[in-house]
Design a protein around this nucleic acid. Structure first.
Lengths: 338, 338
DNA sequence: TCTGGCACTCTTCACATCCGAGTGCCAACG
DNA sequence: CGTTGGCACTCGGATGTGAAGAGTGCCAGA
């Protein structure tokens, strides 16, 4: 087991390395942190830490840098979440309050996160599956062609074309619209299938085909999780990554363009609380030298989507976690209000 | 005036430089292009071209590279648009045909353009102002709260909340909905203001306030050009830019995140035909070492939005222009069908 | 007007060198 | 047993030198 002081040494190494971006040696450590021991002692501790795999040296006769395992220990045991200051909180709130619609909320959130953390921000649009239906609208575009519009409580709107098997009269349409809304408005998506199950029975035989088609289109829309979208921003911050550019940055940019990868990444994170994944803990190869800090956010007590940042493993974890948490909280408030 | 051969020399320089990314010298030129003259002659021509500002040498005793002015001449006079091959066209069409909705069309277009040109692709969502109204829907969310949903012929949907000055009955709502649609459905956005001008007169005094509010919200939505969105992709291709990375790539990434900049850029381009802007012809500073090839696309004969690519000034102009034009054409077809 | 020749300029690369930061080990000390 | 100072050792990075090569500009001649 690692002694208390060794943990302190590890913490100091992480902090210094995050600050300077350069391998940190024993002498510098004793100077910048008053550990109360000599460089020689620190060297012994470092050797032990290296044996355990928490730190490594890039070359012989260079300082040490933390390994993924080292960062993991740092995040889990050695560091807390650095709360935002009062002015910062206020700035966040002000900035988000200016949003006019859902797109704008998401866009502002991305910019805010990117600015606060100086890293790449990723914000998932509020997901359909966990939200509730505000309204379902049916429009007749042509005798046998309908448009289905679904409006959610988070302000999201989805539309689908429906080709009817048979012409569908205006009165039937009004009837269906009314019945549909009385059953599903205000309900959670997951409850909808059950609620509309027997709806076709209420209609004449000739309309039943159309009703069934409409319903199945509606259900498809509801479960269409792969339609989940996300917005990313702050990619320019990638240029602060390392000094050996093209190789470092390209795979990350490529991964960021693969929305599937990002969605999977966010999806894998625990549903509650903040999740930090470090370096090789991330399955995707291109992101092996990055860390991802993500958290769920939502309008109520429950998360409806996730947001987070992607940055170098060498990042300021406490600060980043603080910013992510704060932003998620305020976005949740904004969504609840609207 | 430049002689015919000097123009050929310029063309050869551009082609070689685009291919090799290295300054091109007189000897290499005569070897790769059979100009029928000796290196010494080419040297004289090069000196003349340099005097005129079409080419420059990075250092004494290096080959020449084209200047912005040189590229401009090349694009205007020396090169055509390289058409896509048959298989390429088919691949484009197949890929775009798979799209399920507007978002998907745009997303696919971006990916396609990025892949074809190996550069950064920018696609503007079909703009509101030039399209026509398919349907306007009004929903009552609360006694004095409406939701206005606008559906365009390009499949785009915009929604807005409307707070009414006074409660608005269901029958009035149905009335307004019907009147509104009979007037504006199928009309162009630009005609809408005129068409609904006298609509409030048809209502009772008590409802007039609400009707006016609804109308002004509708008009706001129509003119809200700043709401114009765009999608970008292929940023990973930036890593192929130059070898002196961070400095080259950062300002570009920053500019790409400023949607305002990009929208302005696309907006400035001529309405019809393809526009190529090269290097310093672009006002925005961060994009001074890039070129932008853009073109309008639309469902009919008229453009409803623009798309294009951003790449290094040293790009394959004929090929890029061919890809951009082809993609724009097919996207137009897809939009017209849906 | 084109061509071959020639001297000149610079960049690039490889190689050798030097300096210093940082380590590991060891013997001594409390 | 943990801590400390000393010391030899290792490498990486910076610096300098020299040779090679590419490319130019200019000039005299066809």
């Amino acid at each position: 087991m690692l002694s208390e002081r060794r943990l302190q040494v590890l913490r100091a190494i992480v902090q210094d390395y995050v600050g300077t971006e350069e391998p940190v040696g024993s002498k510098a450590l004793t100077e910048r942190h008053n550990l109360g021991v000599s460089p020689a002692t620190v060297r012994n501790d470092m050797a032990a830490l290296e044996d355990e795999g928490y730190i490594a040296q890039p070359h012989t006769s260079a300082g040490r840098i933390p390994t993924d395992k080292g960062y993991r220990l740092f995040v889990d045991k050695l560091a807390g979440v650095k709360p935002m200051t009062g002015p910062e909180r206020r700035a966040i709130q002000n900035f988000l309050d200016g949003a006019v619609d859902l797109d704008d909320v998401v866009a502002r959130t991305v910019r805010l996160l990117a600015q606060l953390t100086r890293q790449v921000a990723v914000v998932q649009y509020p997901s359909l599956t966990r939200s509730t239906v505000r309204h379902v609208e049916l429009l007749s575009l042509a005798p046998a062609r309908l448009m289905l519009v679904l409006i959610t409580d988070t302000g999201r709107v989805e539309q689908r074309m429906v080709d009817c098997p048979a012409p569908f009269g205006e009165s039937s349409l009004a009837d269906l619209r009314a019945r549909l809304n009385s059953r599903v408005a205000g309900r959670r998506f997951s409850d909808v299938p059950r609620l509309v199950e027997d709806l076709p029975d209420a209609f004449e035989a000739e309309d039943r085909g159309t009703v069934t088609t409409v319903l199945s289109t509606l259900l498809e829309t509801l479960v269409e999780e792969n339609e989940e979208r996300l917005m990313i921003g702050g990619t320019a911050n990638l240029t602060r990554f390392g000094h050996d550019f093209p190789l470092t940055i390209r795979p990350v940019l490529e991964a960021l363009e693969e929305q599937v990868v990002l969605l999977k990444l966010l999806g894998e994170a625990g549903d509650s609380g903040m999740t930090v994944r470090i370096g090789h803990e991330i399955a995707h190869e291109g992101l092996n030298s990055t860390s991802v800090v993500s958290v769920g956010y939502g309008s109520g007590s429950e998360a409806v989507a996730k947001l987070g940042v992607v940055g170098p493993t060498r990042m300021d974890y406490p600060g980043t976690m603080g910013a992510v948490r704060a932003v998620a909280r305020y976005v949740g408030q904004i969504l609840a209000e609207s």
